[in-house]
Amino acid sequence: MTSVTALFSPVEDDLRVLNQNLRQLVGARHPILSAAADRLFQAGGKQLRPAIVLLVSRATVGDGDITPRHRRLAEIAEMIHTASLIHDDVLDESDVRRGIPTVHSSFGNRIAVLAGDFLFAQSSWYLANLDHLEVVKLLSQVIMDLAEGEIQQGLSHFDTDLSLEDYLHKSYYKTGSLIANSSKAAALLSGMSDELAEHIYQFGRNIGLAFQIVDDILDFTQSSETLGKPAASDLRSGNLTAPALYAMAKQPQLVNLISREFCEEGDVEQAITLIHESDGISQARELAAEHTRVAVEHLNHLSASEAHQCLSRLADYLLSRCF
């Protein structure tokens, strides 16, 4: 399987500069908030979102180098993502992310919420200074979508009437919107036509949905140690994802367990077994594969380049993670 490092090789130096800049962008005016935000920057991760922004920038800019505005856009995307993770962990009461204590478990809920707000505010400031109205609108929509996604998720816990369409809408708000809109923004900063920028948007949207579906599959197929958080944590909290939704159609007993919110001992373990015994996980894999296929179709409207090739291979990599 291709490694993430190999996929991001055309922007390896760009990501190194991004990591250096993120700490400077957060600043030191509020040491506690900065330390809290820095916790997640230090935790690392795949940096999928800024890497996609940088790869799209290089795939659309032509023969020249990417601009400082492209680089700043990638930094803004990572700041928005990090802010959303801090808030998500508070809402989900998660104690661990990427194998290390979450911000709220180390600094308390109040500091965690303020640190997330602080990052959102900082990203909005740097976004405004890009001086590109359409890009400002796109990334502002992302922040609205993240909030909408959290609201939808909060209102649908243990909701056995949740449809697959509802799940995909929520997944777009929580994951797809940032990748889709920041990718389109990168294309616009490169001076691409509206038509090509829309293809880039659709690439990002479908890659984002595939990424979320794959993550939801891994929640059932990988260990807590590999995930860096408790396995099946979404199911335990009543957040129903693609594998569970598909399994519910074939397993009435699973619907009953979820409806009673796993109130009896052994309910969660029985639910996990029922999902594995159904074809819910394999159907979710097929759904992820369809979104990666559509993503690559839209990407093929771009001229050939090394960055373009890496974006295409990224789709294959995402899908390979759940097989």
Rank of each mutant, 00 (worst) to 15 (best):
C310L: 07
T102R: 09
L311V: 10
V96P: 00
D219S: 10
M248A: 06
R49F: 13
L40C: 04
T67R: 08
Q20H: 05
S177D: 02
I66W: 13
D145T: 02
Q222E: 13
S233K: 11
G238M: 14
L85T: 05
D63T: 03
F211Y: 13
L133G: 02
D234A: 14
D216W: 06
S106I: 05
S84T: 15
L138Y: 03
D279L: 07
R236E: 14
G228R: 05
R205K: 15
S193V: 04
I275C: 01
S190L: 11
G44Q: 11
I151W: 05
A232R: 03
G44W: 09
Q153A: 06
S237I: 06
E198R: 09
H199M: 01
P101C: 12
P243R: 11
T82F: 14
A244G: 00
H298G: 09
S303E: 15
S9F: 02
F158C: 13
L133V: 15
L146V: 06
E261N: 07
P68F: 10
N129E: 15
L274M: 15
E265L: 07
A232F: 04
K174F: 05
I76V: 11
K174A: 02
L15Y: 03
S171Q: 09
S182M: 07
N300E: 15
A185H: 05
S303A: 15
H199D: 13
I281R: 05
H30F: 15
S224R: 04
I207P: 01
Y167A: 01
R39I: 02
M79N: 03
E261V: 04
N256M: 09
C263L: 14
E12N: 07
I217G: 00
Q20W: 10
V294Y: 15
A74K: 02
G64D: 13
R313Q: 12
N256G: 10
D117L: 08
A121N: 12
H132I: 01
E12M: 03
A289F: 12
L235P: 00
V135Q: 07
P10G: 08
M192P: 00
L240R: 01
D65E: 14
L287I: 03
L240Q: 02
K46Q: 04
D145H: 13
R236D: 07
T241W: 03
D38H: 08
H291D: 06
G99N: 13
A249G: 03
Y246N: 01
L189V: 08
F323G: 12
F41C: 03
R285N: 07
P31L: 13
V136A: 13
Q152S: 05
Q152G: 13
L299M: 14
D267A: 15
T292R: 03
F323V: 12
H169I: 14
S282C: 04
S124K: 12
N206F: 04
K170P: 00
A186E: 01
N19R: 10
T2C: 00
D216Q: 07
G99S: 14
S94D: 15
E297S: 13
E148Y: 15
D219F: 09
I258F: 13
S282R: 08
T5W: 00
K170W: 03
L119A: 02
F8C: 02
G45S: 12
I200L: 11
V294D: 14
P230C: 07
Q253E: 14
S282D: 13
G204N: 09
G228A: 06
S123F: 11
L33F: 04
L318H: 05
R321Y: 04
